[in-house]
Each structure stands twice: as structure tokens, then as C-alpha cells.
Design a protein around this nucleic acid. Structure first.
Length: 424
DNA sequence: TCTGGGGTCCTAGGACCC
DNA sequence: TCTGGGGTCCTAGGACCC
């Protein structure tokens, strides 16, 4: 029995999350902004219809947004993360094989066979998610993940399908592929699409029928895998076990330009603290820390400087003070005065499970402050982020990002629970 | 004035080894 | 003018994803 893949994708996810608590915004144009209210990263269908592009800078669209009364939200990841968990847990309860692919997407395996009513199963799943969580989803079904992705696109573009589209056993499959541009195939990006277009390959059908050696040469093995998937040969399995991560990043743009080493030290300490907490939460340690900073590359009128440094740690660790120490030592080496810094961050690599911690042959193990870190995490979990923090993270944080339009953390903070009133 | 953040994979090239 | 061959490992950079 050939496998059947389905992609469950939340519609305009961040917008749908905001609308859940503001139902009067249904049918009205809504956008959600990136951190620092920089770019537009989610749009309702009405906002798309106004011509607001994905990823477009907010300030460039502000006039259009105000003219049409578009509702604007800063991103509220506490809310989106929590609602994502709810959608995913329903999938996990109802389906045997689920791969959480991103905050708003999951692949599932459906039982195939002649008797399987795939579209019917998907419609029922969709209705349950809408009923239990309130988030609308689209479901695409196909013999490979790549085709399920294309099916999902079709489901979204054709509301008359009821949010579900099945690409298995379709005699007109090639016609549908001919109607899909290469740019819209999962795995073919802007560069790849331009390269293909220059060589006369414009649609998913063209790519499906292209010569293997030719694809391999121009798009590497990943492109060839995509082409095989278009032919209905599954090359990308559903990963039901979470794949262990290899790196972890915490970085932010600043709310306003930063000039001094003192401010950068605060910001970097704050980011390291966040990363270290996440590291411990996942039971991991890091062997290396990469610290980096950069000026605003959009400001061509200002002097530019970008730098980063990898700092090896004496031992793999998840201890906040050990990581802060390494990061600040690295920061001191790469800092140059006289620049308007826009962003800084840290990346942790060489991750391994804390349980299989590698010892250093030439140095005794430093004092383990695992109990202290555990207490720190418990306090901050119970009383809120940064209730207890390292002094180097600062208090006023003048560099902190701006979020002018953030909605309340409706589902994750007691103080911000929505209040419902019944009218008499 | 104002342009996000967090990941993975692949390849080429250099360093190094025998 | 001519300057081995084959292998591994690491890193940086590019491309892609959401």
C-alpha cells in the first residue's frame, strides 16, 4: 500500500491567533509585525488583497495601512506558541504519525488504500481543530510531502474545496503541476527559481520532466530529491521522533542604535541568559559559543561593521554565568567604538545531552552550579521571566526592542486573561 | 526616523594526513 | 617547463525553510 502524506497548515496563523480573541476582526484586514515592529510577517486575506507583501517593511506600508484601517499587531510569540501547542496536541491525539514541522504546520501520515476516504478524514480533522481550538487550517494530501505541500496551496487558493485538497489518484495531476510555478514548490527558493527560469523551466511539470543529471548539476541533490517527489516517489520521510537540534541562537535587533560596550554587554548577557535557560530546558549543554554584532546594513550612509567570534568553552556547559563569561570575553575582542550597532546575538553549538557530558582531560571539572541553575529556572518559571537575573543583564535595558501593538498574553499569564461579560 | 528571528543542509576550499 | 594521489575533517558561505 503506497503511503499517503498530508500537510496540515494553519491559515494566516498569527492573524488567526489574534482574531481568536478579537472576533470583530473577522473579515477585516489584519497584519502582524516582526520583532521591533519591523516587517509584516503575517497578513489576513483582506490585507493580502490590498497588495501588502509578505516581509515588507512596516514603515513603507504605513500610509496604505492607515488609509484602509488595517488592524496592526506586534508579534506575541507567547500567544502563538501556546495556540500552536494546542493544535499540535489535537493532531497527536487523533493521528498515529505526526511531524511538527513548524509553529503552524504539521505533516501526518494517513492510512491509504482503495477504501480510504482521504478527503473525508481531512475534513473531519479540520472541523475538530476549528471546534476545539478555533484556528482554521488547510489540509493538502499527496503521495509525497512535496505534493502534499502543493495540494495545500491549492486548498488555500480554492475556498470551494472546503479547505482540503487531495492530489492522490488525480488523472489531471500534470495539469495541476503545469499550473504551479517552480517558485511555489517546497525547496525551490528565489535563487533556484531564477536559475530554472533562465534555463526554460517554469512550472512544477517542467521540473518533474527534466533530466536527472541536469537537475543534479544545477540544483544539487536536494533539487533532485524535489523532482523525484514531484514524480510521486517519496524521498523525505515523516520524522515522528524530534530530531536533536545542532545549534541554538538568540539574537535581537535593538529598539534604537547602540554605541557603547556597556549597553552591548547588557544585551549579550540577556540573550545568553535566555539561550542558557532554553538549553537547560532541553537537557543540553553547549561546547562552543559564537558571539556576534552588526550595524544596520540598510543604512548605507553610515559606517558598517560586522563581526563574530567563536569562543570554545573549557567544558560543555549550560551554566548561565559560565556562558555569560565566555560571551563577554568574546564581545570585548570584537567590539569597536564609533559604530551605531543595530543587532547582537549568540549562537551555541556543539550541543550534547547533559547526561553524556564530556570531561576535560587536563583540567578538573569546574564547580557545578546545576542546583543553583535549577532553582533560578524554577523561580523564573513560577514568577515570570527575569524575576531573578544576572546583574550584567541590566535593569533599564534602553536597547530593548519596541512592540507598540502587542496584544495581551491571553492564555499564558494570569494577569492578562480575557474577561468575558454576559449582557443582560 | 523606521527593514525579524531561528533553524538545516550542501558545497567548495583549505589544512592536514599518509 | 616540469611539481602525486587520495582521503578526512573543518569552516565559511550560500540557499532554503518557516
Amino acid at each position: 500500500m503506497s503511503p499517503v502524506f498530508a500537510l496540515v497548515d494553519c491559515n494566516n496563523f498569527y492573524v488567526s491567533c489574534e482574531r481568536l480573541f478579537r472576533p470583530e476582526l473577522e473579515g477585516r484586514p489584519v497584519v502582524v509585525l516582526s520583532n521591533n515592529d519591523g516587517c509584516i510577517i503575517a497578513r489576513s486575506n483582506e490585507a493580502k488583497a490590498l497588495g501588502i507583501a509578505m516581509g515588507a517593511p512596516y514603515f513603507q506600508n504605513r500610509a496604505l495601512i492607515e488609509r484602509h484601517g488595517v488592524e496592526v499587531f506586534s508579534s506575541n510569540y507567547a500567544l502563538y506558541g501556546d495556540l500552536s501547542d494546542r493544535v499540535m496536541s489535537i493532531l497527536q491525539q487523533l493521528e498515529p504519525e505526526v511531524e511538527i514541522y513548524s509553529i503552524d504546520e504539521a505533516f501526518i501520515r494517513l492510512p491509504g488504500g482503495a477504501a480510504a476516504n482521504l478527503a473525508g478524514q481531512a475534513l473531519s480533522l479540520r472541523a475538530k481543530i476549528k471546534q476545539y481550538v478555533g484556528i482554521p487550517v488547510s489540509i493538502g494530501i499527496g503521495p509525497t510531502k512535496t505534493l502534499a505541500k502543493i495540494a495545500n496551496r491549492i486548498a488555500k487558493k480554492s475556498p470551494e474545496q472546503g479547505g482540503v485538497f487531495d492530489l492522490t489518484d488525480r488523472p489531471d495531476l500534470d495539469d495541476l503541476l503545469a499550473g504551479t510555478e517552480v517558485r511555489d514548490i517546497w525547496g525551490i527558493g528565489r535563487r533556484g527559481a531564477a536559475k530554472l527560469n533562465r534555463r526554460g523551466v517554469f512550472t512544477a511539470l517542467d521540473l518533474k520532466n527534466a533530466n536527472d543529471g541536469w537537475i543534479r548539476k544545477h540544483l544539487t541533490v536536494t533539487g533532485l530529491r524535489t523532482a523525484m517527489e514531484l514524480r510521486g516517489i517519496p524521498c523525505i520521510p515523516v520524522e515522528h521522533e524530534p530530531v536533536p537540534r545542532k545549534s541554538m541562537v538568540c539574537s535581537r535587533s535593538f529598539g534604537k542604535p547602540v554605541f557603547t560596550l556597556a549597553d552591548l554587554r547588557e544585551a549579550v548577557s540577556t540573550y545568553v541568559s535566555t539561550a542558557a535557560e532554553k538549553l537547560r530546558g532541553e537537557g543540553l549543554t553547549a561546547a562552543n559559543l559564537h558571539v556576534f554584532l552588526q550595524t544596520n546594513s540598510h543604512r548605507l550612509d553610515l559606517p558598517q561593521y560586522t563581526a563574530g567570534l567563536m569562543v570554545g568553552l573549557l567544558q560543555p556547559t549550560s551554566s548561565t554565568p559560565a556562558l555569560i563569561g565566555a560571551a563577554l570575553a568574546g564581545l570585548k575582542k570584537i567590539y569597536r567604538p564609533g559604530f551605531a550597532y543595530r543587532k547582537a546575538g549568540v549562537m551555541l553549538t556543539g550541543l550534547m545531552a547533559a547526561a553524556i557530558r564530556q570531561q576535560n582531560l587536563f583540567r578538573p571539572a569546574p564547580r557545578d552550579n546545576g542546583a543553583l541553575m535549577h532553582a533560578l529556572d524554577r523561580i523564573n518559571d513560577r514568577w515570570g521571566r527575569e524575576t531573578v537575573r544576572y546583574a550584567s543583564s541590566g535593569l533599564a535595558k534602553p536597547w530593548c526592542m519596541t512592540r507598540e501593538h502587542k496584544s495581551p498574553s491571553y492564555t499564558t499569564r494570569w494577569k492578562e486573561l480575557p474577561v468575558v461579560k454576559a449582557s443582560p
